[in-house]
């Protein structure tokens, strides 16, 4: 019965964005009802709003912001060998770019000569 709306059909699945959006808004309303029953007030501008730093004070705003370069340490650490090889390939020198181009062209020449055309 719910399929009456135009659902976006793929070879082995389906998806209806508008229906999901309606359901999402209604459940957002449900969540808001529960949320609005709670306490709203808090003591502004007191020590309360300072970020929790195990009791210490963060000297300046710059230090409170974790910079981009040490993000996803876990992931990069786990794929350490892969990333070392990848960084070595990206040299940034135009001659290497063209060398890669010639390499891939010659490789594809061999492939096309072998299986390029239907016998």
């Amino acid at each position: 019965m719910v399929g009456a709306l135009n659902t976006y059909v793929t070879p082995s699945g389906f998806w209806n964005p508008i229906l999901w959006l309606i359901a999402f808004l209604i459940s957002l309303l449900l969540a808001y009802i529960i949320w609005s029953r709670g306490e709203k007030s808090y003591k502004k501008e007191t020590e309360q709003v300072k970020p929790f730093f195990a009791g210490n004070v963060i000297e300046s705003k710059e230090r409170a912001h974790v910079r981009a370069h040490n993000i996803y340490w876990g992931f990069v650490e786990a794929l350490r060998p892969y990333y070392m090889a990848l960084k070595r390939i990206h040299t940034g020198d135009v001659n290497d770019y063209v060398a890669w181009f010639i390499g891939v062209t010659s490789f594809m020449l061999i492939i096309y000569f072998l299986w390029g055309v239907k016998p």
Binding site: F24, S27, L28, L30, A31, Y32, I34, W35, G38, E39, K40, S41, Y42, K43, Q48, V49, K50, P51, K61, A64
Partner: peptide, 23 residues
């Protein structure tokens, strides 16, 4: 009390739990 930290982006900070529960 529902504390909103001083560095926080207020609207996203409060919206995040609601969106999570709704999703």
């Amino acid at each position: 009390e529902c504390i909103i930290p001083e560095n926080a982006v207020k609207w996203l900070f409060n919206a995040a739990p609601l969106i999570a529960l709704a999703a």
